[in-house]
Design a protein around this nucleic acid. Sequence first.
RNA 1: CGGGCUGUGGCGCAGCUUGGUUAGCGCGUCGGUCUGGGGGACCGAAGGUCGUGGGUUCGAAUCCCGCCAGCCCGACCA
Length: 519
Amino acid sequence: MWSSLAGSVSPGAGWVRPCRMTLVARTVEEAACPAFEWVGCNGWVGSPSMAKPPVLTPQAEDFPRWYQDVLNKAELADNGPVRGTMVIRPYGYSIWEQMQAQVDARIKGAGASNAYFPLFIPESYLKREAEHVEGFSPELAVVTHAGGKQLEEPVVVRPTSETVIGESMSKWIQSWRDLPLLLNQWANVVRWELRPRVFLRTSEFLWQEGHTAHATESDAAGYARQILHDVYEDFMVNVLALPVVVGCKTPAERFAGATNTMTCEAMMGDGKALQMGTSHELGQNFAKAFNITYLDDTGTQQLAWTTSWGVSTRMVGGLIMGHGDDAGLRLPPRLAPIQTVVVAVRDDEAVIEQCRVIAQALEAAGVRTRLDVDTSTSMGRRVTDWEIKGVPVRLELGPRDLAAGEVTLARRDDGSRTAVPIDGVAAAVQGTLELIQSDMLTRARDARLARTVSVETVDEAVEAAAVGWATLPWDRVGPEGEAALGSHAMTVRCLVRPDGSVPDSVGETDLIAVVARSY
RNA sequence: CGGGCUGUGGCGCAGCUUGGUUAGCGCGUCGGUCUGGGGGACCGAAGGUCGUGGGUUCGAAUCCCGCCAGCCCGACCA
């Protein structure tokens, strides 16, 4: 619909700003909440004594509670009746649908095709790959009874589908001509969780899981990286406006059964990290377990090399916590299900008619538009509601605007309001949407840099990661350092090269570890 | 699984210490009037087996015991 922004995807040099430890001393409150943002956005910042109580719990007061408030008041999701499950409400689901559509298009662009594999997996399948079953068994939901009697072999509800898909791959792949086999499925999966959080960690969630088989290790490695960069990083940076750090997981943090796990990590509004998506090289582990073999062009039987990769509804949580402020959600225009809302200020025939005309013009220009002529609800209430829902641009039209031939354009991201002529408003909105998209990315990147500190020791990293992220040489950490970080509820989120690029393997020298608290 | 806590209209809470007629409050919901440029005001209404089972008592939301559910904090995960 509109051209992609100029910003390049690759982080390049200078992706982390080295700075003094003094910056670390800033409290979370100071970093997250500059001043009186809670009063609303702009306009009146009345005296605190007169101010109404904030609609949402301020982030600086209680970030988890703020998150809960946003989920409720923006009508994104409820808790389900079974602990750890969630009900995704229509507005929340429309956000997910946007993610699906735009990720799916990129997946197709990478050559993969969608298919569907069963929810139920024979328990024995999981057991075929030792590390895999060990990693997942604690969180498996297992069906032992069905059809009124006990099953001969229990079936597990899929926690991920490497095993069933591996079984199909072994049937479908005979020759080198069948490779690469590039599959994807959109599905729900179940991982029984002890500490659930809506969107971030629930016992059931929605995701996309890609599974591919290749003739050579380098083909598999290349494809896993193609997905990582061209699908995930590109989507997160250019659509979600979240400047993710992309790197390799340490062996301790690897996916169960993988030989290499690569990740996109985003910083949330409270300085914690969130794993937004992963792409795995599975080596020949699953090929061996499921006998995925092919005849090469010399007639020799060979084991295939497989990959898997996924992003989930967790990204919705990342979007909320990555961009949200004390007035609620802030959606980047390219993702927003509603990009612009046209609000009629008064119950006035001419005003409402003009609103309709404007909304039609916007739709015709390809802007996802909502018309709000619910004048029985107070203006202030409607404005607040649209802000909580994070709609990027709000057009307010009342008798005063109409008389002046103007409409008031309010930006959700920075709270600014300007009058624009009604003639040509669609073009103005389109321009503003592009501006918001790039400003949100810039703001998020600056915020992350400001809270990322380069240090030299594990102890310094512990201090720095209390409020943000720390980077330090990986050879100063090692398995022992990783354990030490764990005792402070911190982890190495990923390993990157000094220039910010993704290592070929974690065995490279001079790698940098990114340390943070995480969700 | 170990430690701390909570169950009262849709949501958030008060009441319990010291038992006493009709269980309150805020938000939300519904109706109405005035309003309307940043969660408007007023009037009226609906909505509750006080988690559950037992016990004490003339009388239990309140005291005692059991059970259940949930929340927060410590080991795994997209």
